[in-house]
Design a protein around this nucleic acid. Structure first.
Lengths: 328, 328
DNA sequence: CTGAAAGCGCTTACAG
DNA sequence: CTGAAAGCGCTTACAG
């Protein structure tokens, strides 16, 4: 029924070992290689990847575990990862945890069972804090988020500097009641919060902090509560694109004009942020670079398992738009 | 080094066959099952999925091949597919073709080599038209797009009706120079174009049609050329969310007010479409339902390979917003 | 309910 | 460069 390597061998008049070599990079004569290729075409043979992986003990697979595939940041990063992986002849298993530690555990177990070559992972803070250098059975690079210091290779944004840049800009525009709404699940949100706090202190301003599940619906609800209060902030910093969207919706619903009644600045230069009036000031992350660097670190870790742990910190770019312009 | 089923068997004092049964749904005594589970915990055993798949000839895997993962429509559908798959104990391989027939061929081949249980596929028109009922070695459900009539199960929108609804609305608002910008790669764009043409004819209006690669950059460029002409349309229908975004950008750049200088209506109720002023009129697709129905068709096809081909046609919902309001 | 044995479809030393 | 044979780590008839 299904055609296997034996059928190809028979058709080509060679052994299965030779077929295997001809299809891989083994040493075979040109004449034999052509015979084998003809036999493959004639039989419609497709190698069984499960058998190949089992025997060769090389899964040729990398796992990509992201926190939320609806977040364009992760879609963009994952495209960069996939491009690099397929260019290197590796397949990608994409997993989506929804910021849920239970699902993270599930997928990490799956990675073990797949015997993956390596993993790129954006963990929740809960999971990251529990993972020591030797808790993972495969080479792993953290992305967007870091874990215990020195435990894992990682590629992250300079979150402290980026958040501070937003505060500096708002302060320079004359805003002083600057609030910060940060995600509750990631080390990255904490770092952005720390950068915010440090910068606020530097400007002699009192910090106004709330945290929220990093999705648009939760952010909208929390923003609406906050902005509905009489002593509401006059400017808001939002720690990612989803939270930024939630805040924009809340401002709309409450009838707050941006930036007249409320200035807005956030993270992630998503395609819609320059389309909503008057344009949203954001930190743009080098998404393609993050994905590419993560793959580079992963490949190098696979090559040299014992090399020191590395952390690549990339700078964000501040994109100034109308949402933070001081209205006289 | 790595712990295998033999190590577990030894630790539990049973045969490997018994371990295999205890881990699966084989008949084993409760006492033995507990011993085995204890041995699994003690040894840290993780089954090798490649070996399991090879031996059992059940990949427990479905392939999901989408045209563009940057398109939120496909991200949304893929989440629905994944939820259903993981609930059924199946893994998902997600592939992204970028509307490129060469990449589609590559991934279809990969699906064969993985011996997948089934595939959900959003093909380009080029590939769809080349795929007869028996050209695929695995059960397949087309999604968002259909192929040769009766060749494959599919879940699609009622594209003709949806496009007509947009034309009807614009015509009712008094617009007559209504243009249509459609994607160039999918059967779906063609159907939307057909619905547009029929409705225009019904209203006694002359069709104005252009087509473009279905991405924001190409759509922006084409829209800018079109809208820069003196006899430009006074209203535009855009065949998906990416093209809609491109058109919005072009209108911005040209300084055309919406809807004063240009009315805009499109497909896909993406989160940003109600945020850009004055809100964009769109057809909302039942994305979760599309994913869930596709999985249902796929499961039923796997169950009953010889049942008749089915096509599920879902209705879109017209969401009216300011972008199509007639300004006196 | 349990075990011994065969075998899924490949690749890879080992010889030649 | 090529072939015969072993074996990757499981599951599954086949017996009992």
């Amino acid at each position: 029924m299904s055609v296997g390597i034996r059928d190809v061998a028979r058709a080509a008049g060679v052994s299965t070992a030779t077929v295997s070599r001809a299809l891989g990079r083994g040493p075979v004569s040109d004449a034999v290689r052509e015979q084998v290729e003809a036999a493959v075409r004639a039989t419609g043979y497709r190698p069984n990847l499960s058998a190949r992986r089992l025997r060769s003990k090389a899964a040729q697979t990398i796992g990509l575990i992201v926190a939320d595939i609806r977040n364009p940041f992760f879609t963009a990063v994952s495209r960069a990862v996939e491009d690099a992986a397929y260019a290197a002849g590796l397949r990608v298993i994409l997993c989506n945890t929804d910021e849920d530690p239970a699902r993270e555990a599930l997928y990490l177990r799956l990675m073990e069972e797949e015997r993956v070559t390596g993993v790129i992972f954006a963990p929740t803070k809960t999971t990251a804090d529990a993972l020591t250098a030797d808790s993972l059975a495969f080479p792993t690079v953290f992305i967007d988020r870091s874990g215990l210091p020195g435990a894992h290779d990682s590629v992250v944004l300079d979150n402290v500097a980026a958040a501070a840049a937003l505060v500096d800009h708002l302060a320079a525009q004359g805003f002083s009641r600057i609030g910060g709404l940060f995600g509750s699940t990631s080390s990255t949100a904490r770092e952005r919060q720390a950068g915010y706090e440090a910068a606020m202190a530097r400007h002699g301003l009192a910090p106004l902090i709330r945290s929220v599940a990093p999705n648009a619906a939760a952010a909208e609800a929390e923003s609406a509560r906050w902005l509905g209060q009489p002593d509401r902030p006059e400017a808001l910093i939002l720690s990612n694109g989803l939270i930024l969207m939630g805040a924009v919706r809340a401002a709309r619903t409450l009838g707050l004009g941006v930036p007249r009644d409320l200035a807005l600045a956030g993270f992630d230069n998503e395609p819609w942020t320059d389309l909503v009036e008057p344009g949203l000031t954001v930190i743009e992350q080098p998404v393609a670079e993050i994905g590419a660097q993560a793959m580079r670190l992963l490949f190098e870790r696979i090559e040299s398992p014992d090399q020191p742990v590395r952390k690549v910190v990339l700078s964000g770019r501040t994109v100034l738009r109308g949402s933070t312009r001081r209205v006289a």
